[in-house]
């Protein structure tokens, strides 16, 4: 019994220590933002990598996110007898504020976060990170800062793109299966749209981008023990980012939206 409690306590301490060291890495990487002008090449490369890896996935997932939310909303509207002309408003808001930021971030965490952890992890266990250190090159500046910056930049962009695609998916379902004209649907989206919604979506997705970048880098940077260690780092990166994304989403919502 006590052993069980001890084990849980130890795990909790490990997890908190890990969060602390991830946060320290974030601060160190942000310090090297001062070298962004010299690192434009690497940053561009990382942006391309992120876009290239996630674009097709984002398109597919976003269409279906939009489609299913229109379908579900229509079902609820009919159930409570709400007028369907508000469908566009409800679905559009949900997509911009919540669905696109969170779901894109999760998809990207699985793709990009894992990729970052695997790449840096492989460099760590094959002494490439040591080699950088030995040449007086900070791995945090050279490897981590460009990945973190690119991910904080690209994930909001991809989220905006995802929102457009998702609204397209919702529109398609509304017109084809719910019997709403596309004018009605889009007017609903437009009338309910507030700049604040977009800003809050962007704030969220920037935070999610930082989480994906820093967690991927941190897990890779602390990989140990050959190929197996790299595999473990990759899985951990995805799991930890996903959990952190949900937690951050809740915290940001309570700050931005007063109920």
């Amino acid at each position: 019994m006590t052993n069980g409690f001890l084990a849980i306590g130890r795990r909790a301490i490990n997890f908190i220590t890990r969060l602390g060291s991830t946060f320290m890495l974030l601060l160190k990487a942000i310090y090297y933002f001062k070298d962004i002008p010299r690192s434009l090449g690497q940053i561009f490369e990382q942006c391309f990598f992120i876009g290239n890896k996630s674009l097709s996935l984002i398109i597919i997932t976003s269409i279906f996110i939009g489609a299913v939310s229109a379908w579900q909303a229509a079902y609820q509207f009919k159930f409570i007898g709400a007028p369907l002309r508000y469908l566009g408003a409800a679905v559009g808001k949900a997509i911009v504020i919540e669905l696109s930021p969170v779901l894109s971030a999760l998809v990207i965490a699985g793709r990009v976060g894992a990729g970052i952890a695997a790449e840096i992890g492989a460099m760590k266990v094959t002494e490439q990170v040591d080699a950088l250190e030995s040449m007086a090159i900070s791995p945090i500046r050279y490897l981590i800062m460009p990945r973190l910056f690119a991910s904080a930049l690209m994930i909001p962009l991809l989220t905006v793109f995802s929102a457009f695609v998702a609204i397209g998916g919702a529109l398609l379902v509304s017109v084809l299966f719910v019997d709403i004209s596309h004018e009605t649907f889009l007017l609903g989206v437009k009338n309910s749209f507030k700049i604040f919604d977009l800003v809050s979506g962007l704030i969220k997705s920037t935070v999610f981008g930082l989480i994906i970048g820093v967690v991927g880098c941190h897990e890779g940077y602390h990989a140990e023990g050959g190929a197996r260690g790299v595999g473990r780092a990759t899985t951990e990166a995805v799991v930890i980012s996903a959990v952190m994304i949900f937690i951050a989403d809740y915290i940001i919502a309570t700050i931005l939206f007063k109920v």
Binding site: E127, Q128, D130, A131
Partner: peptide, 8 residues
Amino acid sequence: FQSAALLD
């Protein structure tokens, strides 16, 4: 380095 550790 023992493994040369060239950047891939």
